[in-house]
Nucleic acid binder design. Structure first.
Lengths: 127, 127
DNA sequence: CTACCTGCAAAAGGTTTGCATAGCC
DNA sequence: GGCTATGCAAACCTTTTGCAGGTAG
């Protein structure tokens, strides 16, 4: 793959941002440093970077997909109140992949855990 | 909520089909028994039934969302080769929700686990 | 009878793609 | 110089919505 200012910028944007941005958010942020980058370029690079394993893709099912610069084993907790996405470390003893492989004879490559709930702030405000 | 032939049909379609159909698939199958049901109705009812907790909504992130008639605790294993979605029972000792609540002080309502890998058949064929 | 639900079609996102041009190597 | 990546805009797909007419209670 050839180098490009845009791809570097997109990768940096995601790596430096723990907010799990959507493509649109990456686009907006990238535009601050490269005003005429296009949404198409952002999508093409997000897809390329995921395929290379340099970023991760999160399916959240409400609206649009999100991207994550963290590659270590963890899961996501989404607040149903404010939409914030929190990272949670996953302890080793949750050997879910191995468990699934034993149960099914599949070979598991990837695991995606998304929980939904309410953060402490929203619990105070909403209830 | 008022009763309707269409809603009953949609619910049945999902309950009787372990394939975790997409909205389009539910629509096609429902049309066999009710030829002029509309896609809009399917979407409206899928959404209503999810909200009532009568079916579950799965975020799979490739293309379109899927629906599941099983309500017990389990997770999904998607074959990257053929796209098949397999159910896997989740043992009680994986107390993931409780773990997340302890770690974060969130109140967790819902957990969604999706794994991706290759099924035995595809492993034979593809590799 | 009234309120909710449907079918239809248009609109609304989000994401992908074709094409001509620009930029890396 | 050749080949890849970009910008732009149009195309695509899934999902949502507005409206007029139908149906359950």
């Amino acid at each position: 793959m050839k180098n490009s200012r845009q791809r570097t910028l997109i990768l940096e944007t995601i790596k430096n941002n723990p907010i799990h941005p959507t493509a649109k958010e990456v686009y907006n942020q990238a535009r601050e440093k490269c005003p005429n980058i296009s949404l198409g370029t952002v999508y093409r690079n997000l897809s390329a970077l995921s395929e290379l394993g340099l970023i991760k893709h999160i399916a959240v099912s409400d609206g649009c997909d999100r991207y994550d610069g963290r590659l270590d084993r963890h899961f996501h907790l989404i607040c149903s109140g404010c939409g914030k996405v929190k990272d949670v470390e996953l302890e080793k003893y949750f050997a879910l992949e191995r468990y699934a492989e034993e149960q099914t004879d599949y070979k598991v490559d990837e695991i995606d855990i998304v929980m939904r709930g309410y953060c402490p702030e929203c619990r105070k405000t909403l209830f």
